[in-house]
């Protein structure tokens, strides 16, 4: 499996996907504090127009909370871009038939799935981490940490949601042979879970609840409130992973 993992690393580096993803996540990392920083100026520019509509803009104050609000607001876009860039990791190998070479050399199919999951998990962790650290650095530099609570938990929960999405994507990619199928299937399940979360009794038990990191940052909720959701997310991600291995073991390559 180490050899296959090394191959995966080489692939992301040599095909330029790592560079593209790094640039995108660095951009998002800078974007959140930048938007927060520019908010007073933007409001000032729009003040005249808004006044005509009956809104009066006065003394816009930006704090660290605004920057983190932007960070968690951008996170879904980061995850979507991430999955779009890595979306072909199974489909390309099905199409070219290179999986057959690995399997006929005696590599167990389960190890291929595990290597892919490990690679995507490491990539998501690295990129999301870089994005967070950039936002954190700028936010602390400009506004300090006043009014920001349990940031680590909020960031962790969003990371966990990302891992859940990665595992779901891997399962879809083992089930469906095309990029559009794998990404469409992933989007379908996420939308389905989101629709389920509209049922009040279910909302705090589902993985989508973890996306609401700002409620922790602003102390509307405490990390403990996310326990059930985090457990459901962890267990379902594990189920996706096992299912992906089982599906891929029987898949005709």
């Amino acid at each position: 499996m180490t050899a296959y993992l090394k191959k995966e690393c080489m692939e992301y580096m040599r095909t330029g996907r790592l560079v593209i993803l790094s640039l995108i996540f660095i951009f998002f990392g800078i974007l959140s504090p930048a938007i927060a920083k520019l908010t007073p100026w933007m409001m000032e520019q729009l003040a005249d127009d808004m006044e005509k509509s009956g809104f009066v803009v006065k003394n816009v104050t930006v704090t660290a909370v605004n920057s983190w609000d932007q960070f968690f607001g951008n996170a879904p876009m980061e995850l979507i871009v991430f999955l779009l860039v890595v979306g072909g990791c199974f489909a390309a190998e099905y199409k070219s038939g290179v999986f057959v070479f690995a399997v006929t050399r005696g590599l167990r199919r389960g190890k291929i799935v595990l290597a892919k999951i490990l690679m995507l998990t490491a990539l998501w962790t690295l990129l999301y981490g870089v994005c967070f650290l950039i936002t954190y650095g700028y936010t602390v530099y400009f506004w300090g940490s006043d009014g920001v609570w349990n940031l680590a938990s909020a960031v962790f929960f969003w990371w966990l949601f990302g891992i859940w999405a990665v595992c779901l994507f891997i399962l879809m990619a083992t089930l469906l042979p095309t990029v559009s199928g794998a990404l469409g299937g992933t989007a379908g399940v996420v939308i389905g879970v989101y629709l389920l979360s509209l049922v009040p009794k279910l909302s705090d038990c589902l993985p989508t609840y973890l996306m609401n990191g700002m409620s922790i940052v602003t102390r509307d909720k405490v990390p403990y409130d996310y326990t059930v959701s985090a457990l459901v997310t962890g267990v379902s991600a594990f189920v996706f992973l096992i299912s992906a291995v089982l599906v891929f073991r029987r898949k005709q390559l």
Partner: peptide, 20 residues
């Protein structure tokens, strides 16, 4: 036969050898 296009012949054989 299809390969990982980004590898050289030597790198591909090394990868195959490691898998074996």
């Amino acid at each position: 036969p299809e390969y990982y296009d980004y590898m050289t012949a030597g790198e591909y054989l090394r990868f195959c050898g490691q898998l074996s």
